[in-house]
């Protein structure tokens, strides 16, 4: 065991360390550049931007179009979180407590679905399915919301399932039942409180996904229902600094999400 921990296959620690540094740089360099760029007055033809300004952020948060799309993103994101949670919690519970194999495989299928199904395909399907003469949902934020829920299910289901599997739920439930608790009382007082970390992790992931999601938003929304990423796409051609600022907002949402999630996992380890 000992030599393997130190010098696996003759690769020296040095090479491994180099590989790790390279990886960290590879991931961080673009992010850092975006961040720097968002504060630069002018960035064209030079290695790094010149000057320092907050102008781009100021423009971003004062222009109506961006504010509206930000609000739209928050609305769709929040609704997606709520709906996904309401769908995921009973599903996880049912799959976990049932002994049937079939249910389990159905569940596994649901979890890999977003990978197997390109968003463009669901997008074109939704556009055709909900385009009736008397009521067309095409171009409304509702349709985007429906689609986001479909793609968010795994984000919500996975942490909740992991959370539930950490508990000895079957015995907890039996203990509660033997004490005379009704089904609803068990859900309210034991199931939901004990799943709160899982639900919260799922909610954060779902929100981050929905907020930054570009592909479905591009297909499904119209100019009235544009979410932030779609509006942002148009900023690409406004100017480097402004575009950097607009993109940095998305990066921050992702970053904060991961930071908070990380907090959780260390909390959980402590318990």
């Amino acid at each position: 065991m000992s030599w393997m921990g130190e010098k696996p296959f003759g690769l020296s620690q040095f090479v491994l360390r180099l590989a790790r540094s390279f990886l960290a740089m590879y991931i961080l360099l673009p992010v850092v550049l975006l961040f720097i760029g968002s504060f630069g007055e002018k960035w064209f033809g030079t290695l790094l931007p010149q000057g320092f300004t907050l102008e781009w952020y100021w423009t971003l948060f004062s222009e109506k179009m961006y504010l509206r799309s930000l609000r739209m993103s928050v609305l769709v994101g929040a609704l997606t979180v709520i709906a996904t949670a309401l769908l995921a919690i009973p599903t996880v519970y049912a799959v976990h407590t049932s002994e049937r194999r079939l249910l389990r495989s159905f569940f596994d299928a649901v979890v890999v679905l977003p990978i197997a199904l390109p968003p463009i395909v669901l997008g074109i399907g939704l556009v055709q399915a909900y385009n009736w003469p008397f009521l067309s949902l095409v171009g409304t934020w509702q349709l985007l919301f429906f689609a986001h829920v479909i793609y968010s299910i795994p984000f919500m289901v996975k942490p909740i399932m992991a959370n539930l599997e950490m508990l000895d739920w079957k015995t907890i439930e039996e203990a509660a039942e033997s004490l005379g608790a009704s089904q609803w009382y068990i859900v309210r007082r034991l199931l939901l409180p004990n799943l709160r970390l899982g639900i919260l992790s799922g909610a954060i992931m779902t929100f981050a996904f929905s907020f930054g999601e570009f592909q479905l938003a591009l297909i499904l929304t119209s100019s009235e229902s544009q979410t932030y990423p779609v509006t942002l796409y148009q900023a690409f051609y406004v100017g480097t600094g402004f575009a950097c600022a607009a993109v940095t907002v998305l990066v921050l949402v992702a970053g904060v999400t991961l930071w908070v999630l990380n907090r959780f996992s260390s909390l959980r380890v402590m318990q």
Binding site: P30, V31, L33, L34, M205, A208, F209, G212, E213, F214, Q215, P229, L232, Y233, F236, A243, C244, V247, L250, V251, A254, T257, L258
Partner: peptide, 11 residues
């Protein structure tokens, strides 16, 4: 966690 957009602009 990034949307495709962020990656595009980063590149």
């Amino acid at each position: 966690t990034f949307s495709g957009l962020v990656i595009a602009y980063a590149f």
